[in-house]
Write a protein that binds this DNA or RNA. Structure first.
Length: 510
RNA sequence: GGCUCGGUAGCUCAGCGGUAGAGCGGGGGACUCAUAAGCCCUAGGUCGUAGGUUCAAAUCCUACCCGAGUCACCA
């Protein structure tokens, strides 16, 4: 861990959309990374909503509300998603907040002062739905070429501000070449390199045909994407930085969906450079969650509803599934059946049952009191586990982090079968029995701490059953030392951590 | 169509120049502390196809087939 602060963000979510499992996925990923980082030093996480743009203005009008009233009514839904998935952010930014407008205008002015912003007339065919200008050649029968849109386009002639993005191509190429980890995974990196090698066009960064956006001096508003990106630094208090947050936490790490890699790795760094600031430290573009191998869509009727999912399986089980099922970064499929199987097998059988059988034996043989270990232990094999988990998580190898943690789960289960506490008890070999029982409790304490970022609620319940005070949200370097668990601790077994789930009636069994 | 990524045991994936691996599922076994959980044993898969380079190729090169993505401002 570097001494400076660790800063990690989700994309800001377009407020008029419907929260779905992909949003939860981004948020949980950032939450896991941030909780792990906090266990080692100063860390901040950020999420929020993107509230400007013509689409929002039109939706508001259709709903008979002012844009501001409209977005105010929608914002709580996005906070609810955070609650449903137990994600905890240090800040939640809305692009309609004054602090964001201030930062956006300041950035715009700095870019202009540096000569990277110029005024020009933009004429062309414009699709309101996509908020995009299309070249004549792309139109299909005079309509928007986006297959999911296909609405009629209109001829617009606007005097707008443009950003000299083309001037930053060489610098971007250098960034990509000198830091191959700047954008991951590799496939996204390759794609952006291809775009760079093809050259960049200047970018229109204001709109004058509608007014729902951050107003510019002299008329017009900032283009929604331009202001959206700035959220990452406006939330840190830039440019005034009264609390020193920007100085401490920027540059940060952005977790995004793969479809917006271009904005985050080409446009955003160039904007920052133009204003004399550092580009983000790293961008991780994750894949999509598919339903049975297909993209979720309303027309296919296969949309997985995030609130119902968390309700049925529990936030922690879904969180676990999302990051155990596939390497972070790739597309993968989700289904209720797969989720149930993971829950029963990994969480119920391996982990939940380990806690239960361990505490049951402690109860039976030692009245639930953690014994004094006087014989050998399994400590040698696990000493470097926390560092391995930390390295994986902070490098966004979230699946590998869980794999490592599960090695300890397996080690503890195996150790029970090998050392056979029931035989030790019958034979009156008290020291050896104490050693086994201590190892189990201490191992479970470790698991509680290591799993806290992934499954905060269940990890806390483990902690409670182990009879520990406080929560498993502790500094890893201090607490993950074998033997810190105090002898004499009174444990408090409870209900099964992950009760077995029976198949749903409509579920097809494999 | 250009470009990118992938095609390895039933499923999900790791390996990426040196005698084919893991988890899950399936099959078998010994136990009993436990959520009929856990533990041990068990997969003989022409590593998409066809060529090539090499003493040696899932592992490098070429062509092709299949799937996905991107080029088109939805996590």
């Amino acid at each position: 861990m570097p001494a400076r602060g660790f800063y990690v963000t989700t994309p800001i979510y377009y407020i008029s959309g419907t929260p779905h499992i992909g949003h939860a996925y981004s948020s949980v990923a950032v939450d896991i990374i941030a909780r792990t980082a906090r266990a080692h030093g100063p860390a901040r996480s950020l999420t929020g909503t993107d509230e400007h743009g013509q689409k929002v203005a039109q939706a508001a009008e259709a709903a008979g509300a002012t844009p501001q009233a409209y977005v105010d009514a929608l914002a709580p839904r996005w906070r609810e998603l955070q609650i449903a998935y137990d994600t905890r952010f240090d800040d939640f930014i809305r692009t309609t907040e004054p602090r964001h407008a201030r930062a956006s205008l300041a950035l715009f002015e700095r870019m202009r002062a540096n000569g990277d912003v110029y005024e020009s007339v933009y004429e062309g065919w414009y699709c309101t739905n996509d908020e995009t200008f299309w070249p004549e050649s792309k139109l299909i029968d005079g309509r928007c070429p986006n297959p999911e849109c296909r609405r009629p386009v209109e001829w617009l002639s606007e005097r707008n501000w443009f950003f000299r993005l083309s001037a930053y191509r060489d610098r971007l190429l250098e960034l990509f070449r000198t830091d191959p980890d700047f954008l991951r995974p590799q496939s996204r990196y390759n794609e952006m390199m291809a775009v760079l090698e093809g050259g960049l066009d200047d970018l229109s960064i204001s709109r004058s045909s509608f007014d729902w956006g951050i107003p510019l001096p002299g008329g017009g508003v900032l283009y929604v994407w331009f202001d959206a990106l700035i959220n990452y630094i406006s939330a840190l208090g830039w440019p005034d930085d009264p609390d020193g947050r920007f100085a401490t936490f920027w540059p940060g790490v952005h977790v995004i969906g793969k479809e917006i890699a271009r904005f985050h790795t080409l446009i955003w760094p160039a904007m920052l450079w133009s204003a004399g600031l550092e580009p983000p430290a790293r961008v991780f573009a994750h894949g999509w969650i598919l339903a049975e191998g297909e993209k979720m869509s309303k027309s296919l009727g296969n949309v997985i509803e995030p609130f119902a999912l968390a309700e049925r399986f529990g936030a922690d089980a879904v969180r676990y599934f999302l990051f155990r099922e596939a390497p972070f970064g790739t597309d993968f499929s989700i289904s209720r059946e797969k989720l149930r199987q993971r829950l029963n097998s990994d969480l119920g059988n391996d982990l939940g049952n380990l806690l239960r059988r361990s505490l049951a034996m402690l109860d039976r043989y030692r009245d639930g009191l953690v014994p004094e270990p006087t014989a050998g232990s399994i400590a040698e094999g696990v000493s470097d586990l926390p560092a391995r988990v930390r390295d994986h998580v902070l490098a966004m190898r979230l699946r590998e982090g869980l794999d490592e943690i599960w090695n300890l789960v397996t080690t503890l289960n195996r150790s029970i079968d090998e050392r056979k506490p029931w035989e030790l008890a019958k034979a009156g070999r008290g020291d050896e029995l104490d050693a086994v029982l201590y190892d189990l409790c201490e191992g479970l304490r470790w698991l509680s701490i290591l799993l806290f970022p992934y499954m905060p609620s269940k990890a806390t319940e483990m902690w409670r059953q182990l009879g520990l005070s406080g929560t498993p949200e502790v500094r890893w370097p201090d607490e993950l030392t074998w033997g810190r668990l105090a002898a004499g601790t009174q444990t408090d077994p409870g209900l099964p951590l992950f009760p077995r789930l029976e198949p749903e009636p409509d579920e097809t069994e494999a």
